[in-house]
Nucleic acid binder design. Structure first.
Length: 809
DNA sequence: TTTAGTCGGGG
DNA sequence: GTGTACGACTAAA
């Protein structure tokens, strides 16, 4: 028979002394399918010192492992021609065992490609891409599984078409957890389990709660059983959760084991598997488990503004939605009390979390799938990869096309040596603190990737033997040169990414589809990760010299830009890595555009300077304790009056709302009106309001999370004092509890003046403390730029504060 | 300043 | 499973 199917997942099993690949997928009609392929053989390569080893290799037998065939092959190793021998063995596990044995042989120079996982090797060698349409020839066989099983005789790519309508099921559990942050799956049961699909909303629980979508089971064991049934009925392509690799699925597994419930959720009846100890990974054969948090932490880390990756912050930034605000600390005691109304609130919270996770998965899936298409590994694998792994696997895929051998990972010792070497960094021109007008920002588009591509930087081209002393790299630290005779492997494959992305950007001008956007983002991500990869100690294609050459060129181009700008009569005020801020003074925007065009005429390859923006007004503040400006700390106002704030502490959690608000408002007045007196009056007003105890109490709350239990703290800081107060009230206080407190008037140390917000009356709070520790520090540097000492201003003009300050000093 | 150790996410 | 994260931050030396 012949058939087409979308490949979703892949695994392998040992059957009758052979490795059999299992492909899981869906037909165009939506039917699930398992395809077995037993024709693929495991192999690796050896480089020999002595060809006499070939016969010895052919004879090799070890604990059921044997060599089936030895073939000489021409390949490139680090971009140079070599002859290696391909060793075909009987089983995937034989590779590792045989490698360990033969690496000690004197005839062996080195063993290569012994750690490319069997299923990944299969995908790359067969040139098939997960999530897209394949065609097969074969016969259906009779085997116990939840889908028809076909034994394939032929498998190949049919088209680039991606599986349409991916069925996602999101899950989230709530556990009984009286001890707070420390969780104990051995002891504490799962009390709620929420599932969210496209048309599916359900909370499973086992105490009486009335409500839509709530299903009450007899006990935890029944809940787990029901969970299993639902997965069976729903047949999702993707199961997703938030930290479900490390929490939800391991917890479910542990509880199911306790009741001896077999979680055979796999399409082939295999069980839910939890691998790894510190960094757990949960997998189900035939269903792609996506842990949204893993992708966000590893891949979206740099693109998101938030620096905490909990569901609340991430959902807020990516979806504009909040989690339900429930007192999670009280869940266990509410469960014990069987307070039905409150439990219903927790059930709704549970379902909402699953819903957020569902939406996140749906939103990010296009980006993940684009990476799958570039790298050709399964969604399950790609979704869990870091930047460097994505680059490495892209290179491994490309290595085949270039007939390049995959270099080995460095050993522990080699890694340590690499870590010690530090690449010289970017050039920074520190700003002179000040308030400036008519600012133009230039930046080199994708500077590092375009340097690597345009200057042919690769392992085989940097400091090559053939061109010593020719094409020199402009570096201040060591002699580096680049090959003129051949194109490098890494520089070529990064160029392919850049070119492909340029094409997509063109297409994006006509068609703003999410698919094209996702593709562009995937390629950008990959290109931007190459430089980091060159300098990454665990990289197979590590090149310290390549990384040095890249930053050397970057320093050269940015310094060149600065001096040319100055020669052309522009005043440069700030520059960092790839961007340059100038002020126009008596020149015009047109002059700046012309200058940018001139620079572009002389740039090589795909390098390009962008006029990134024009800003009528901008403020650069000073670094603490120096006269020069702070790096990466400035505020700009664009032509539409939007503020772009970089590096100011406006978002830090342990600042009160009033401090953030005052800082933002002051920046606003300064940038929009250039009126320092008005800004100062605003601060003074706020100070007065604070002193007269007229400020809203809610704006004064300081948020701090308790990191350990109360008695572990040697010094009682304000938030620990708040924790003590909370405990006295009979509320559970455990590591992780978020403390909210206000500093109030009174004698003694600050910790003695802490009160919980609900106990604070309007006249209680200590205005003086807020002025001194929140307001002044948040605006000090801004006023200092304009020659105003806020502290002094507030002192001389106001007697109350004067008294307060003299008391302190 | 350098180095070793912990933590994140989850209830 | 042809395996064992990683980068940021803090405490200690």
């Amino acid at each position: 028979m012949k058939a087409s199917f979308y490949l979703t997942d892949i695994t392998y099993k040992e059957e009758d002394g052979k490795a059999v690949i299992y492909l899981f997928g869906r037909t165009k009609e939506g039917q699930r399918l398992i395809v077995k392929d037993s024709s693929f053989q495991p192999y690796f390569f050896v480089q020999l010192k002595d060809l006499l080893a070939i016969d010895k290799l052919k004879e090799l037998k070890l604990e059921g492992c044997k060599v089936l065939e030895v073939k000489a092959i021409k390949k490139n190793y680090l971009e140079k021609e070599v002859v290696v021998h391909k060793i075909i063995v009987n089983l995937p596990r034989s590779v590792s065992i045989i490698k360990e044995e033969i690496k000690k042989w004197p005839e062996i120079e080195q063993v290569l490609e012994y750690d490319v996982l069997f299923t990944r090797r299969y995908l790359l060698d067969k040139k098939i891409t997960p999530m897209t349409l394949l065609k097969l020839e074969g016969e259906q066989i009779n085997e116990a599984a939840k889908a028809p099983v076909i034994l394939a005789t032929k498998i190949e790519q049919e088209s680039e078409e991606v599986l349409p309508k991916i069925k996602i099921l999101a899950l989230d559990i709530e556990t009984y957890n009286p001890e707070g942050k420390t969780m104990n799956p051995k002891k504490n049961p799962i009390i709620m389990l929420a599932l969210k699909g496209e048309k599916y909303d359900k909370v499973l629980t086992w105490k009486r709660i009335n409500g839509k979508n709530i299903e009450v089971l007899k006990n935890e064991a029944d809940l787990l059983q029901r969970f299993k049934e639902i997965i069976e009925e729903e047949k999702p392509d993707v199961i997703t959760g938030y930290y479900s690799d490390g929490f939800d699925l391991p917890y479910i597994k542990e509880r199911a084991d306790r009741y001896k419930i077999k979680l055979d959720l796999g399409t082939d009846y295999s069980e839910l598997q939890i691998r790894g100890k510190t960094d757990k990974v949960a997998s189900i054969s035939g269903i792609i488990h996506v842990d949204v948090l893993k992708f966000i932490r590893r891949v979206l880390r740099t693109t998101l503004n938030t620096d905490t990756f909990n569901l609340e912050s991430v959902a807020q930034e990516l979806l504009g939605e909040h989690k339900h605000d429930v007192p999670l600390d009280l869940l266990a005691q509410t469960w014990d009390k069987e307070d039905e109304e409150k439990l219903k609130m927790f059930a709704e919270y549970n379902l909402h979390d699953a819903n957020l996770c569902y939406q996140l998965c749906q939103k990010l899936l296009p980006n993940m799938i684009e990476l799958v298409k570039v790298i050709s590994l399964s969604l399950f694998d790609v979704q869990r990869m870091s930047f460097s792994q994505l680059v490495e696997w892209y290179a491994i895929k490309k290595a085949q096309e270039f007939n390049e051998l995959i270099p080995n990972k460095p050993g522990f010792y080699a890694q340590q040596e690499r870590i010690k070497k530090r690449v010289h960094g970017a050039f920074v021109f520190k700003p002179t603190p000040g308030l400036y007008s008519k600012i133009v920002v230039f930046d080199y588009r994708s500077l590092y990737p375009s340097i690597i591509a345009s200057h042919n930087i690769s392992i085989g081209t940097i400091n090559c033997e053939c061109c010593k002393g020719k094409k020199k790299v402009p570096t201040e630290f060591s002699e580096l040169w680049i090959c003129e005779k051949k194109q490098g492997f890494l520089s070529t494959i990064i160029k392919e990414i850049i070119d492909k992305r340029a094409e997509i950007k063109k297409a994006l001008k006509q068609d703003q589809s999410t698919l094209l956007k996702a593709r562009s983002e995937a390629l950008k991500l990959l290109a931007n990760s190459f430089y980091g990869y060159l300098a990454f100690a665990v990289a197979r294609w590590y090149s310290f010299e390549g990384a040095e050459a890249t930053t050397a060129f970057a320093r050269f181009y940015i310094k060149d830009l600065i001096s040319k700008a100055q020669e052309n009569g522009f005043k440069v005020i700030y520059s960092d890595t790839d961007s340059c801020f100038i002020i126009l003074e008596n020149k015009t925007k047109k002059d700046a555009i012309k200058f940018c065009e001139e620079i572009n005429k002389n740039l090589p390859g795909s390098m390009e300077l962008d006029l990134q923006g024009y800003y009528p007004s901008g403020l650069f503040v000073g670094a603490k304790g120096t006269t020069s400006g702070a790096k990466k700390k400035y505020a700009l106002l664009d032509e539409k009056e939007n503020m772009i704030i970089k590096g100011f502490e406006t978002v830090r959690r342990n600042w009160s709302f009033i401090a953030k608000e005052v800082q933002k408002k002051v920046l606003d007045i300064v940038l929009k009106e250039h009126n320092k007196q008005k800004a100062l009056s605003y601060v003074k007003e706020t100070v007065k309001k604070l002193e007269k105890n007229q400020e809203e109490i809610s704006k004064l709350i300081i948020f701090t999370q308790l990191q350990k239990s109360i008695d572990e703290y040697e010094n009682i800081s304000p938030h620990v004092a708040a924790a003590q107060l909370l405990e006295k009230k009979g509320q559970p206080v455990v590591p992780g509890t978020m403390l909210k407190f206000i500093i109030c008037k009174g004698e003694g140390k600050i910790r003695d003046k802490v009160k919980l917000p609900e106990d604070v009356k309007q006249e209680d709070y200590d205005g003086e403390y807020y002025i001194d520790h929140q307001i002044i520090p948040s605006v000090e540097s801004i006023f200092s730029v304009m020659g105003i000492d806020v502290e002094k201003e507030l002192r001389t003009k106001d007697q109350t504060t004067l008294a307060a300050f003299s008391k302190k000093k």
